[in-house]
Design a protein around this nucleic acid. Structure first.
Lengths: 224, 224
DNA sequence: ATTATCTATAGATCTATAGATAATGC
DNA sequence: ATTATCTATAGATCTATAGATAATGC
């Protein structure tokens, strides 16, 4: 399933050498991610980005046409990293009855690792021009789609109860968002739960329904 | 449970007449909410706010000390409206076995009604000065606390299975956030589900575990 | 000659305030 | 006299670009 050849290539540049473009844009993204996380998109200036990237403001504008371009590069890079992370993590998951619990655990760990980045997307997507906001939202759906596929397969093999495709889809959204919740409520949650406790409890909540195995196992961990 | 005498009063002003302050600030908030939803906080100028509120930029700065003050007034007003909405809605909920389903339905309808406002909070909280961001996040926890109280009570009367206080707390967070999810994934969800379908399916998901009544009722609505 | 980079700055805003004016109440 | 409001603008940025300079390869 997929080589995500980052949409970023659509952004025009004055520079002829494609390798150079890729290298410099990576510098721009790395510098910007840091700055945006610290100060937010609007409070970061293009000069600060150029400086942190290691070249002049003039050069910066050879590689992008606007500050919004930079935000798009950043969002796109984050999604690419998320997707790689998730697919790498999911490749470790075995088939079988506990597959979904493992999927959740792996995915939530990726969310934990990329907390600042996910938060950035939640906060700054709105600042993108319409055309690119749309692309970023599509990325979000693509991520959710990975879970739809897994849930559907598990339902097919009987490892999950039969459910309508709409229930499957909504469940996939819930898993995505409850992973994100750890990032945007972290200032609260992390004071009360470790990431592993959080995963354990949420797994119970999410699987509770699907297994339909009664209310007996509430205080028990599933694994770990 | 509470008169939320909006924290807003802490913001200093040059104007002596408190009624006037309240009235003018309401004008400021009403104008700003509209503008922020349309263009975002950073792309809205103080002049536009003053104009939309119906007075001059000079007067505006008699009622607030900075643009951030305005954002805080806006966030605070939104939380106040949310809390009023939720408490009003919950006052219609009866005790008993279906209480939680009703709570969810009422709460999600409030989220639906206030979708733009909730989204605004997600996007712009970060732009607040530390001190006020903290207050806004506390508001968020207070809202969640309402659900903690309800769940705990239902667990006490036996209308929910016994569960640890941590599970109750996390469940409350999930309900809050899955209501918000309708607002920040609305561009996708609303294309595939009506708000009532969304509520029905999510209710099944959330209650599925707690009732522990097996996987039989999947395709059945609970009410409506 | 071509490509990449830099310096210097035009041009456009935007926030916040100072100081003038109008309205209100004694 | 006091309170509220307005006009005009100081002062501070910030994005984006034009035009000059340096590096690269023929």
């Amino acid at each position: 399933m997929s080589h995500h050849s980052s949409n970023a290539k659509e952004i025009p540049t004055q520079i002829k050498n494609p390798d150079l473009v890729e290298r410099r844009r990576r510098q721009i993204v790395d510098a910007s991610v840091q700055l945006f996380i610290e100060k937010g998109f609007h409070k970061t200036t293009t000069r600060q980005i150029a400086k942190a990237a290691g070249f002049s403001i003039g050069s910066l504008y050879e590689y992008v046409a606007s500050k919004e371009d930079i935000l798009y590069l950043v969002c796109d890079a984050i999604h690419e990293e998320m997707e790689l992370g998730v697919e790498e993590a999911l490749s470790r998951v075995n088939e079988g009855r506990d597959a979904l619990a493992e999927v959740i655990r792996e995915y939530f760990h990726v969310c934990h690792r990329m907390a600042d980045h996910i938060l950035l997307i939640y906060q700054e997507t709105q600042s993108l021009p319409e055309q690119w906001r749309k692309k970023v939202l599509e990325n979000e759906i693509r991520m959710t789609g990975i879970f739809v596929g897994i849930l559907a397969r598990l339902a097919g093999t009987g490892d999950l109860p039969q459910m309508s495709s709409r229930s499957v889809e909504l469940m996939a959204h819930n898993i995505s968002v409850l992973g994100h919740m750890w990032t945007f409520r972290r200032w609260f949650l992390a004071r009360h739960y470790s990431i592993d406790e959080y995963i354990r409890l949420q797994t119970e909540v999410i699987l509770g329904q699907m297994r339909g195995n009664g209310a007996g196992r509430f205080e028990e961990a599933d694994e770990e």
